[in-house]
């Protein structure tokens, strides 16, 4: 459905996208993961025909994003990263406005947005600027969907949204996909990668990997050890000075630890930590998560 072929884009000296190629299949949820400044927004803006790539080509369906920009703008639904609705208009007025400029009406496509809109309908006479973050996102999604686009492009839709709303939001996306809409979504939250069919990981404008979430986890090259302790911070500091350490990262209440070799010598590590005064340490080999995979990719 979406072909991105060797796209490069720079702003002055800074290279924002460096020969990125991605193919998105019809009717899949494709995630674009990457830290801030990775080039996610630039890529989406190119797809939406808002900016022109320096080199490379991109198509949606069989429409070129540069040449056929008029037609492209009819078949995509775009939700920018920043909340971009009219804050002084009410929820209903916003939705109505976007329906009319796309030449449709709320009634016509109500069934498509019903599941989402139903959450905010009780507040339909409230001004959009007075909504909570989660509700704003729902309204923006409704507005992006109101004309039943073929492709939905969502730029960091869950940034700044509470955990419950984020979960709801992803549930909505899978329902939208069932309607036959292809979704491309970006997020800085690595844990959300697992909710996509396939993900691409972007850093500094470079594409590091494209795979299914499972594929990315399976490609993880090392054993990984979870360390827990009552003095977690002290353990972390000391582990970092351990000669064999490859990576040691704090994940909530545990430290994820890998060694330079593939496997880990747990006994030696325990002895080292004991010498440093950490007696009460618990270690378990664990399955890597998607975040471990991404962090490893970023390290490389």
């Amino acid at each position: 459905m979406i072909w991105i072929d060797n796209i490069s884009k720079s702003y002055g000296e800074r290279l924002a996208l460096d020969s990125v190629s991605i193919q998105v299949d019809e009717n899949e949820i494709f995630g674009l993961i990457g830290p801030d400044g990775a080039g996610k927004t630039s890529l989406f803006r190119i797809l939406c025909s808002l900016i022109v790539p320096d080199s490379g080509k991109a198509r949606i369906g069989n429409l070129d994003v540069v040449k056929d920009y008029r037609k492209i703008r009819k078949i995509i639904g775009y939700m920018p990263g920043r909340f971009s609705l009219y804050q002084d208009l009410t929820v209903e007025e916003n939705l109505e406005f976007f329906a009319t400029i796309f030449g449709t009406s709320i009634k016509e496509n109500y069934d498509l947005i019903r599941d989402i809109y139903i959450h905010i309908e009780p507040f339909k006479n409230r001004k959009a600027g007075e909504l909570s973050g989660g509700m704003k996102q729902k309204l923006a999604l409704s507005c992006a969907l109101i004309h039943r686009p073929e492709v939905l492009i969502l730029d960091e839709p869950t940034t700044g949204v509470d955990a419950v709303s984020r979960k709801e939001f992803w549930e909505m996306l899978s329902r939208i996909r069932e309607e036959g809409i292809t979704i491309m979504v970006s997020t800085p939250y690595m844990d959300e990668a697992q909710l996509c069919d396939r993900v691409a990981f972007l850093q500094n404008g470079k594409l590091l990997t494209i795979n299914t979430p499972e594929g990315i986890i399976q490609a993880y090259p090392k054993d990984i050890l979870s360390i827990q302790s009552d003095n977690l911070y002290g353990v972390l500091m000391d582990v970092r000075n351990y000669p064999l350490v490859h990576s040691s990262l704090l994940f909530g209440h545990e430290v994820h630890y890998t060694e330079k070799g593939k496997s880990i010598n747990q006994y030696q590590l325990k002895e080292y930590l004991k010498r440093k005064g950490h007696a009460n340490v618990e270690m378990n080999l664990m399955k890597p998560g998607i975040e471990d995979s991404f962090l490893e990719l970023m390290k490389e």
Binding site: Y78, R82, S84, L85, Y86, F98
Partner: peptide, 13 residues
């Protein structure tokens, strides 16, 4: 400034 122009541009108007 508010980013709504971005949305307007990505529309048939």
């Amino acid at each position: 400034e508010l980013g709504t122009m971005e949305v307007l541009m990505v529309s048939p108007i």
